[in-house]
Structures are given as structure tokens and as C-alpha cells.
């Protein structure tokens, strides 16, 4: 079994239909430990739908999702998060009424050991654990350079920092696989360049496998080791960035959309 090749995520024959529309059709993918894989495709190609199936927001009509060989198809999203998959959202979805620190702390709730009653009565067992998770959360914020904002409301942060916080919040669940849904959306080239370095850095520091959706070709081509292209829910190409750049099917798909 252990041949050195360790498959973190395996998607086999994923199909999902909404009414009559087939949003994702027969999608297969394997991601190895430590890989950085990109998923690209024109608007409405079904990229986010694939993410939503992986994280349990949608249940596929057919096909299975495996995490480290375990079948997690149809699990509730919170259980999938506990199993080790974390994500960010295309249109940032922070807990805007909570502070930056609290946003990160929410992600640690799933590992809470103290019983509810000990929290309600503020018993020493709970207080001790609360102090520990606060320390962990502050350390995480420090590594992501968010400490100055710790007590700000998440909704009041500048956009770029909100994106960063969303990644911090995902990391706080202690994931093995991180899904990033258009992390560079709305960023200028300079910010995107910084983000690229940041993504590579967290992959190494947190020992992650990363699967990302992105429209910014510079980012995808710059950091992904392998790229998958889908269009109308169907995989049309896969390969190294250079191969993808030259692939006629990919060019056609993008040009066909109106030369985006």
C-alpha cells in the first residue's frame, strides 16, 4: 500500500445535476500529498461546484469523494472540516460581527474537549482550555501578520486583509487539504504577487496540500505544479502549466467564451 505516493484527495466519477442541468460531469482527480493543484475554466464551468461537492455543501448525484482513502461522500460539511479539509470562499464569507481573533477561534471549536456545562459554569477545566486555544490562535495570527487587527471586527478590515483572514480561519481548523476559491479575486498585480509567495509559504509551513481555483493566469501558471481545466462541467485538459498554456482545447474554451 505505502508506495511513497500518498493520495490525499481522490474524486471518482463525480457528477452533479441541478434539475436538468449537468453542472459537473464525470469528474476524476487525484491529488498527492504536498501538491499544489489548480482548477481553471471559464465562468460557470463548474469549478466552485466541484469545491462544494468536496466540502460537503452539495451531495453529488453520482461518484465518490475520498480523503486519505476514506469515503467521505455525503458527509456534513462540519464533519468534512473535522476530517481535514478546509476552504475559503469566492466571495469572502467571514463572520463579520466577530473580531478577527474570534473568527480564528471559531475554527478551533471543532477540537474543543471541554463539556458544555463546564463552559457555561466557567469551570477551571474550561478556562484552561480557553487560554490554550487563545494562545494558539494568537500564534496563528502572528504567523499571518494579522496581530494588529486581532480585536477589530472582521467586517471592518480592508479587503486584502479579509482575504488573508479567511485563509487564517481555514488554517485554524488544522487542515491537511486546503481549498482556495479564487484567492486573488479583486487584487492588483502587486498584491497577487505577494499572495503567490504567501500561498507557497503556508504550504511549506503548515505541511499542506493545496487545491485552488483561480482566474488570474499569472498566479495559476506561477505556482501550480499541475493544472486541470474544465468547461461545461467536463475535464478538457490536464498538465503542467506550460502544457496547458499551449493546449488548443484550452485556448478554444477560453476564446469561445468571448476572448476573456
Amino acid at each position: 500500500m505505502d508506495t511513497g505516493r500518498h493520495i490525499v484527495l481522490k474524486l471518482s466519477d463525480l457528477t452533479i445535476k441541478f434539475g436538468g442541468l449537468v453542472a459537473v460531469n464525470n469528474f476524476n482527480l487525484e491529488i498527492e500529498k504536498g501538491e499544489l493543484v489548480g482548477l481553471i475554466g471559464p465562468n460557470g464551468a463548474g469549478k466552485t461546484t466541484v469545491f462544494n461537492i468536496v466540502t460537503g455543501q452539495y451531495e453529488p448525484t453520482e461518484g465518490r469523494v475520498f480523503l486519505h482513502g476514506q469515503d467521505i461522500t455525503g458527509w456534513r460539511p462540519n464533519l468534512i472540516a473535522a476530517a481535514g479539509i478546509a476552504r475559503t470562499f469566492q466571495n469572502v464569507r467571514l463572520f463579520t460581527g466577530l473580531t478577527v481573533l474570534d473568527n480564528v477561534l471559531v475554527s478551533q471549536h471543532l477540537r474543543l474537549k471541554s463539556h458544555f456545562l463546564s463552559a457555561a459554569l466557567s469551570l477551571p477545566t474550561y478556562s484552561g482550555e480557553e487560554r490554550r486555544v487563545r494562545t494558539t490562535a494568537m500564534e496563528l495570527l502572528e504567523r499571518l501578520e494579522l496581530v494588529p487587527y486581532a480585536k477589530e471586527l472582521a467586517g471592518n478590515l480592508p479587503y486584502g486583509q479579509q482575504r488573508r483572514l479567511e485563509i487564517a480561519r481555514a488554517l485554524a481548523t488544522n487542515p491537511r487539504l486546503l481549498l482556495l476559491d479564487e484567492p486573488a479575486a479583486g487584487m492588483n498585480p502587486e498584491e497577487t504577487a505577494r499572495l503567490m509567495k504567501f500561498i507557497c509559504r503556508i504550504r511549506d509551513e503548515f505541511d499542506l496540500t493545496i487545491f485552488l481555483i483561480e482566474h488570474d493566469m499569472k498566479l495559476v501558471m506561477g505556482i501550480c505544479e499541475r493544472i486541470r481545466v474544465i468547461d461545461y462541467g467536463i475535464s478538457i485538459a490536464e498538465g503542467m502549466p506550460d502544457e496547458i498554456k499551449r493546449d488548443p482545447r484550452v485556448i478554444a474554451a477560453y476564446l469561445g467564451e468571448g476572448g476573456e
Partner: peptide, 19 residues
């Protein structure tokens, strides 16, 4: 905090492991 997270965004809360 989990309760407030559910209040602010159920989908995100669930994705972060909150039941």
C-alpha cells in the same frame, strides 16, 4: 462563538467545522 458564527454565516460556520 460558534453560535455567533452561525448567526453571521451558517455556510461558513459549517465549513469551519461547526455543527
Amino acid at each position: 462563538r460558534a453560535m455567533k458564527a452561525v448567526r453571521d454565516d451558517e455556510v461558513a460556520a459549517e465549513a469551519m467545522g461547526v455543527s
